[in-house]
Design a protein around this nucleic acid. Structure first.
Lengths: 228, 228
DNA sequence: TCAAAAGTGTTTCAAGTACACCCATGA
DNA sequence: TCATGGGTGTACTTGAAACACTTTTGA
């Protein structure tokens, strides 16, 4: 963390970044390299500058601390309890995003000692109220995923239906019926058959699909419902 | 608006308060009585003090400016674009609530020239980006009402199914089928028959229902779905 | 006896659930 | 030929949608 004149001193941003790999859901944490929380794990986060919007700040902060950049961060909730930051009064705006782990190489920023993905069901102790923020965001995600088909960013550009199913199972932490999941998703016409197949698998090769953003946006406008 | 040492100067709160009366949905606005926005309508809002949580601040501000107090305000979204507040950089946390208009007598606070309910489909010009905040909140409400049965605060403690229907029609701005709406709501077991009837109506008296908060909370835990 | 709203019933169709079963492929 | 996951089909049940109909009440 750095203190400087051009930041708003009572206001910070923290990012909850979810990633997915091999049936497991992960969250991105940094280990603080300076300051009173030295050595503690925490959500990537820092101060907002006077000359940037909060959306811009979220991206800058995440990118500088973890090298995960140029992603779509969505605002989640603002946390403003009196005791949440012990040193002084700080209100924090939480952002979240879903990313494909394999698209990013992690690099700790100048004030971070380490950056790592942690399985969401097995996270370490975190600084400040970051555990609360994380848990609140995870249950928000669980809820959200049941109402709109999100999470395509967590997968490779071309993916199989089983991968998608496993992603949903990871987020919801529960088993789903393969056949019905398949039908439900295909009926939405959100997935496009790439006409390609899996390679080098020791079983029948699955069709690779990609996610169609145009169709997704049209559905969003209409305010669609999606139940897993 | 008041400037003082004990407030966080880059951060404010604005409240979108919805009310309902006779098939119409309203929003609560104040007319500024001092400062550069003198005479303009705006959402009730002001600065956050160092010694209060943001939830407390929201309640204090709303109450002092409009006399609408002791209600459940829920955080909605934080707005932080660079140009949203012309004088200097201010980020605002928007809260919203649904209240029964008849439970409150409006009183303008010391810095407000007026307080009034406006029909949501016919609001005046507003200061800053308050129109954007309001519209964003209204569409959020529309979406929310379709997924969970909210809005009971907007009605009297005992209400008829037609009143509830009209509330939903007001929020969604669309006609709904009486019979199906009835069936859907009753099946949820969320409404309790008070065994009382409407009085002095020139037609068959309707059953008065009340909303059961315990049942509602149980349903919330399970993460229920509700479609209008 | 009429208007107005309360309240019930019915038919149709879409969609969710559970689960059995066949297919393709490499080891 | 077996294990593994891919993919299809079906029977059952629930629930949404549309709408006609009966009931109650005061004017």
């Amino acid at each position: 963390m750095q203190y400087s004149d051009d930041i708003i001193d009572a206001l910070s941003i923290d990012c909850v970044i979810f990633g997915f790999k091999e049936t497991q859901l992960y969250v991105l944490l940094v280990k603080h390299g300076i300051g009173p929380t030295l050595g503690q794990w925490a959500l990537p986060g820092s101060w907002i500058r006077y000359n940037e919007s909060i959306d811009e700040a979220a991206n800058r902060i995440l990118s500088s601390q973890t090298a995960v950049g140029n992603i779509y961060l969505e605002q989640f909730k603002t946390f403003g309890d009196l005791e949440r930051f012990p040193a002084r009064r700080v209100i924090t705006i939480a952002y979240y995003a879903l990313v494909n782990i394999e698209n990013f190489e992690l690099h700790a920023g100048p004030t971070e000692a380490d950056v790592q993905w942690f399985k969401v069901w097995d996270v370490p102790k975190m600084a400040f109220d970051h555990k609360t923020i994380f848990e609140s965001c995870l249950s928000f995600l669980k809820h959200k995923v049941q109402h709109e088909p999100i999470g395509f960013n967590l997968l490779p550009p071309k993916f199989t239906l089983l991968q998608l199913l496993e992603l949903y199972e990871a987020i919801l932490n529960q088993k789903l019926d393969k056949s019905n999941f398949r039908k439900k998703f295909l009926k939405m016409n959100l997935l496009v058959d790439t006409k390609e197949r899996q390679q080098d698998v020791s079983h029948r090769a699955a069709t690779l699909y990609r996610f169609d953003e145009n169709i997704y946006n049209k559905l969003l406008d209409k305010g669609f419902i999606f139940e897993v």
